[in-house]
Design a binder for these strands. Structure first.
Length: 430
RNA sequence: GUGAUUGUAGCUCAGGUGGUUAGAGCGCCAGGUUGUGGCCCUGGAGGUCGGGGGUUCGAGUCCCCUCAUUCACCCCA
């Protein structure tokens, strides 16, 4: 195979799939509007340092998954965005948005890039929608964002999702906990695997989400982050849970949930589906009050957000049969040309129909009538309009209803009248 | 980056222990119906068997290398 091939980990979306995207995107749009979030779009690439600072230099994303390049020998290093939050925060700080109003509610749907080996539910270019709420991150704000996300899932009809939630505390809480964890794991250092040894130094919390079965016993015996939280942190977390209870959103508190991005603090959450295979996270998020300062702001900026993987969401929807009713209508009428000498006239007819607002198909490849009719049938046209010698001479066209097979002869104005009537649309087929 | 898996027609796949012109179903095109679709019948087009090298009289089949795919690890959406 010497032909060109799409880049590893990328995917083409063809017309047979696009209606699914339109549908899901439409639901996201409308739920965002219900919650009063406005859309933001930011560039696909940023200076590399933005992600190093924002996401954290020790994270896997920054350490080994970024597409980084130099635009020219003297230029600054650039990186294709591996997530949205850092870019959105950068944009808002750059414009000094928070000086215009104290709270901003933003949402996005954007393509992201991560240089990982592709597998089920994982691509190198993928799409996330998500929201960022800037200016408040109290329990009400956390609940707002979580409820927004869950309402999208509910509107789409997903079931069997699992929401896990945890509190990571504030910086002090975590510093205390880091030391407690180090103290606990240190004696077992020889038993740890390579990556866990490294984490013991850099970020011991991440040892907790290791899936290595050999470590599970050690991990379940580890001290709980929860016990390192100061009372205010605990109270905040319980307020979030109380809001979820009020809204009858089911969740599991998971004390081992840490998540791989450094900027999270206090509440962190993740939604998983058992329909997904190994990569089972469909969405996640949390609070990230410290990110703004990390990016150069003079103070912390309260912030909460979530992100949902569109492709994974759509895998689950497919498995749950949630696209079954999504059949776009075919054309209302196909213009069928008897002989190629009449093609010019037939195209004029099609042009008039389209000007009149009627969805019209016409063969452009000089194919046989049989082929044109077969196509009309396959595309789901409700009607066929024949253009032959006698039609050309008389201006009276044969119009066939392809569902009932009834055929009448009318002039073009009368045909337009017929096709404009609501009854014509009853013959529309998927 | 590591491990395993699979690569034969547009698609889904057959092709024991190597043996002549590599097959099927679906799809596509044409005809049966010289101005009319779906169903049916007939015919046709379409393959460097992922690529390269090797063993052999002979390789889709065996060996090596390589590329790609898929799944999993790591981690994440």
């Amino acid at each position: 195979m010497t032909q060109f091939q799409g880049v590893k980990g990328t995917r083409d979306i063809f017309p047979d799939e696009i209606s699914r995207w339109h549908y899901v995107e439409g639901v996201v749009h409308s739920v965002a509007a219900l919650y009063g979030f406005s859309e933001i779009r930011t560039p696909v690439f940023e200076y590399t340092e933005l992600f190093q600072r924002g996401i954290g230099a020790t994270t896997d994303i920054v350490g080994k998954e970024m597409f980084t390049f130099l635009p020219d020998p003297n230029g600054r290093s650039l990186t294709l965005r591996p997530e949205m939050t850092a870019g959105v925060m950068r944009a808002c700080l750059q414009k000094n948005l928070l000086s215009q109003a104290p709270v901003h509610k933003l949402w996005y749907i954007s393509d992201l890039f991560r240089k990982e080996r592709p597998q089920a539910g994982r691509q190198r270019q993928f799409t996330q929608f998500g929201a960022e709420l800037l200016g408040v991150s109290n329990p009400a704000a956390v609940a707002e964002v979580l409820t927004f996300m869950m309402q999208v899932f509910e509107t789409l009809g997903l079931h069997g999702l699992r929401l896990r939630i945890n509190s990571l505390g504030d910086l002090d809480d975590r510093a205390r906990y880091r030391e407690a964890l180090r103290a606990y794991f240190q004696p077992y250092e020889a038993d740890l695997d390579e990556s866990s040894k490294e984490r013991l130094e850099k970020n011991p919390l991440r040892i907790l989400d290791s899936k290595n079965p050999a470590l599970q016993e050690m991990i379940t015996g580890a001290p709980r982050l929860y016990h390192s939280l100061k009372p205010e942190s605990v109270a905040e977390f319980e307020q979030v849970l109380a809001y979820l209870d009020d809204r009858q959103i089911a969740y599991n508190v998971d004390h081992l949930l840490v998540r791989g991005l450094d900027y999270y603090c206090h509440t962190a959450f993740e939604v998983t589906s058992s329909e997904l295979g190994a990569q089972d996270a469909i969405g996640g998020g949390g609070r990230y009050d410290g990110l703004a300062r990390e990016l150069g702001a003079s103070a912390d900026l309260p912030a909460v957000g979530f992100a949902v993987g569109m492709e994974r969401l759509m895998i689950v929807m497919e498995k749950q049969g949630l696209f079954a009713t999504l059949n776009p209508h075919g054309p209302l009428v196909s213009v069928v040309i008897q002989q190629k000498e009449l093609a010019g006239h037939a195209m004029q007819v099609a042009f008039h129909l389209r000007k009149a607002g009627i969805k019209t198909e016409i063969d452009l490849a000089e194919r046989s009538m049989k082929a044109q009719m077969r196509d009309a049938n396959r595309m789901g046209s409700a009607y066929a309009l024949f253009v032959g010698q006698s039609e050309f001479e008389s201006g009276i066209y044969a119009l066939k209803n392809l569902v009932t097979s009834e055929q009448t002869s009318l002039d073009l104005d009368a045909i337009i009248e017929v096709l404009r009537e609501p009854a014509a649309r009853e013959s529309l087929r998927p």
